[in-house]
Amino acid sequence: MPLLSDTIGGLHFAAIDFESAGAARGETDQPVQIGIAACPRLEDEPELWTSYIAVEKPVLWSASQVHGITTEMLADAPSFPSLWPEIRSRLGQAVVVGHNPATERKFLRRFPGHGFGPWLDTLALGRMCVPGLADYSLSSLCGALGLTCSVEALLPARRWHDALYDALASLLIVRFLVKELNLSGQPLDVLGKAVRT
Rank of each mutant, 00 (worst) to 15 (best):
P2R: 06
S5Q: 12
I8E: 05
I8M: 02
G9D: 13
G10D: 15
L11T: 07
F13L: 13
A15V: 12
I16W: 03
I16P: 10
D17N: 14
F18N: 00
S20L: 03
A21V: 03
A24D: 10
R25A: 13
G26P: 06
E27L: 01
T28W: 01
P31I: 01
Q33D: 06
Q33A: 12
Q33V: 04
G35F: 04
G35D: 04
A37H: 03
A38S: 15
A38T: 11
C39D: 08
R41P: 00
E45R: 11
P46D: 10
L48M: 11
T50S: 10
Y52R: 14
A54E: 02
L60Y: 03
L60E: 12
A63M: 04
A63F: 02
A63L: 02
S64N: 08
S64W: 00
V66M: 02
I69N: 03
I69H: 00
E72G: 06
E72W: 03
M73I: 03
L74E: 06
A75S: 12
D76M: 12
P78C: 06
P81N: 11
P81K: 08
P81R: 08
E86G: 08
R88G: 00
L91W: 12
G92K: 09
A94K: 04
V95K: 06
V96Q: 05
V96R: 03
V97I: 15
H99M: 07
H99A: 06
A102H: 14
T103V: 12
T103S: 15
R105W: 07
R105Q: 15
K106C: 09
F107S: 02
F107G: 05
R109L: 11
F111Q: 05
P112S: 04
G115I: 09
G117K: 10
G117L: 13
P118V: 04
W119Y: 11
W119R: 02
D121P: 06
D121M: 01
T122D: 09
T122P: 09
T122S: 12
A124P: 02
G126K: 01
G126Q: 02
V130P: 00
P131I: 00
P131Y: 00
P131Q: 08
G132K: 13
G132Q: 07
L133E: 05
D135W: 12
S137H: 04
A144Y: 01
G146F: 10
L147K: 02
T148N: 04
C149M: 11
E152C: 02
A153V: 01
A153Q: 14
A153E: 11
R158D: 09
R159G: 09
R159A: 15
D162F: 03
L164W: 14
Y165V: 03
L168V: 05
L168P: 08
R175E: 13
F176M: 03
V178R: 11
N182S: 14
S184D: 15
G185N: 13
Q186V: 08
V190T: 10
L191K: 04
K193N: 15
R196T: 14
T197N: 13
T197F: 10
